[in-house]
């Protein structure tokens, strides 16, 4: 599932952009160092292939519904993790720009969710380990099914985390998880099967493609330690930024943190960082107050607890909402009028 701009908070969106941009930069230098100048056209054309293949649907047996290939693991198998990550990112860029799948700010999240897991978890840690040095048809299917399933499970879980941390959707964390993971388990199995059929077809028809993809590639052999370390670093980075932000905004994440730790307090270093940033934020007033009262936590279960606090002056609230609606109507009319006026002007000149 694609994250959408409309469900994102800037903190989550920008953090994930940062993480993704960093990974893109890292992978780019890796691909460049590889000195295989076949790779760039190959990446581009295979990206176009995945884009196209995703539009060809197949019917899922016994259900009547249809699915399409995801392609993350397939790309990793064909290109190695670094190039595959860049290619997945490119496909998502095109989809975001031309078809509004997700959106521009959500691009960071989507590239992370759909790119990192197949390229840097499923491929090196699962697929390659199961395949070993002697690929056989059975191993190939097991490896690709498990690989795709794990990548999708992780991807779906990070969609949940990103959504909850953003606090725009009211869907509670547990409900969301219970909804997302099983759906993506089913999708993963189907997609894994399809990936298997494609790979086995290529394996019998043109084995040298997979061989050239598997052999002679220093990229394929990244050490497990490096992956684990990078992920730890990533987690700390993301966690740090998000938890600071969450402490500023009691919606969403902090609620779950408070629930887990039993307190709303965050630790010392984060606290001081928090102060500095809070000061900056006050100065820029980027996140000013909003007219509708905020609710503490995005959870249905907290409704009872917070209901007491929500008793407010109804007339005041009514006042804000009426002037708000009138103001919106005015602005809307103005925007449209100005649009028409400008249009006439430019059309007249052009």
């Amino acid at each position: 599932m694609h994250m959408a701009d409309a469900l994102l908070s800037p903190a989550v969106g920008i953090t994930m952009w940062g993480v993704t941009a960093g990974t893109i930069a890292y992978c780019s230098t890796k691909v460049k160092k590889d000195l295989d100048d076949r790779k760039i056209p190959l990446m581009g054309v295979l990206g176009a292939f995945i884009f196209t293949a995703q539009m060809i649907n197949f019917t899922i047996p016994a259900t009547g519904s249809s699915g399409h290939i995801g392609g993350g693991l397939l790309l990793a198998i064909l290109l190695g993790p670094y190039a595959a990550f860049l290619t997945i990112a490119s496909v998502l860029v095109i989809q975001a720009l031309f078809f509004a799948d997700g959106g521009i700010l959500a691009l960071g999240c989507n590239i992370f969710n759909l790119g990192i897991f197949p390229a840097f978890i499923a491929y090196p840690l699962i697929y390659k380990k199961i395949i070993g040095s002697q690929p056989s048809p059975t191993r190939l299917s097991i490896a690709s099914i498990i690989g795709v399933v794990v990548a999708l499970q992780l991807g779906a879980f990070s969609v949940v985390l990103e959504t909850v941390a953003s606090g725009i959707s009211a869907l509670p964390f547990t409900t969301f998880v219970v909804l997302m993971q099983p759906i993506h388990l089913a999708i993963g199995i189907v997609e894994g099967l399809v990936t298997t059929t494609v790979i086995s077809f290529v394996y019998t028809a043109r084995p040298e493609i997979l061989q050239s993809a598997m052999g002679a590639r220093p990229l394929g052999n990244i050490s497990v330690r490096n992956i684990v370390l990078s992920f730890l670093a990533l987690t700390f980075l993301t966690g740090g930024v998000l938890s600071w932000y969450a402490s500023k905004n009691p919606d969403g994440l902090e609620w779950s943190i408070a629930k887990v730790t039993g307190t709303g307090e965050l630790t010392g270093t984060e606290q001081s960082l928090h102060h500095v940033l809070a000061a900056i934020q006050e100065k820029t007033a980027f996140l000013a107050h909003y007219s509708f009262p905020s609710k503490q936590g995005g959870e249905a279960t907290t409704e009872v607890a917070t209901a007491g606090k929500e008793v407010q002056d109804d007339s005041g609230r009514l006042g804000t909402s009426v002037s708000g609606s009138v103001g919106s109507l005015l602005t809307l009319t103005m925007a449209i009028l100005i649009g028409f006026f400008l249009r006439r002007e430019t059309a007249g000149k052009g």
Partner: peptide, 24 residues
């Protein structure tokens, strides 16, 4: 209507092989 599971793999596989050759 619809593309069966068994013919999907070869169809995409064919496309992939042709794409690979094109990249070359």
């Amino acid at each position: 209507k619809g593309l069966g599971f068994s013919s999907f793999g070869p169809l995409i596989g064919h496309l992939l092989i042709r794409t690979w050759a094109r990249a070359e």
